[in-house]
Amino acid sequence: MGPKALEVVIARRELVAPEHVELYFSHPALKEAVPGQFAHIATVGTLRRPISFSRIGEAGEAAVLFRVVGRGTAWLAERREGEVLDLLAPLGRGYPPPDPGRPWCLVGGGVGIPPLYAALGKWGRGMQSMATVILGARTAAAVLMADDFRALGVEPTITTDDGSLGERGTVLGPLRRWWQTHPEGQVYACGPTPMLAAIARLKSPGGRLYLGMEQRMGCGVGACLACVVPAAGAAMPPWRRVCSDGPVFAAEELRLD
């Protein structure tokens, strides 16, 4: 199947937190989407905006959840139900299906949370007892999708930098404790690069770790080589493309120091 140029109608728009908007739409081509993949959305300006799917349904229902950070996302946040979005989707490599025999921890920071919700939504059935969710944000108002995770039967552990909700500090505290008791566990993480680098340093040797990366992106399809992150090993050129080699990488594929 592969990616396509799609026009989708916004079915629902929700302000989920201050400056955070979620747009719902559907298209048959999105049935194929994998959690961790993204839509490259035309806004104003020269470049599209890459946004990971927050929800993926079996009939092609999907959503994207984003923070307003600039002109493009501000324009997108102004869109209303019934308006049309121009997408290239689904793009990139998403998360692999989780190994049903391993404890599973989903660790998200800020707008890194939505793709993890999509992952639990797609693969969580029957794995609730194996799944741990750790959500981090600067402050209580920016903790995304906590109720959505609860609706899937998993009570998230929450951390905030300012202590306004859950444990004061970052996701690293609860994750370190989880990995001590689940050294063979599999961790799906998504968030700011410094957070992911710190998570990679915590990884237990017997565990598995998949990272959803972000980088300033151009084409979104692997052509322009803008959105690179450092590759592990002696690869030359020493990079991987977030848009097409990722956004999801096994921790061993990257050099995150």
């Binding site: 020269t46 803008a226 020493p238």
Partner: peptide, 18 residues
């Protein structure tokens, strides 16, 4: 050739820096 360190693109009014 390795190319340059990221970020490698930046949108500008009516244009793109790479």
């Amino acid at each position: 050739w390795p190319g340059n360190p990221p970020p490698r693109v930046w949108e500008t009014p009516a244009g793109l820096l790479n």
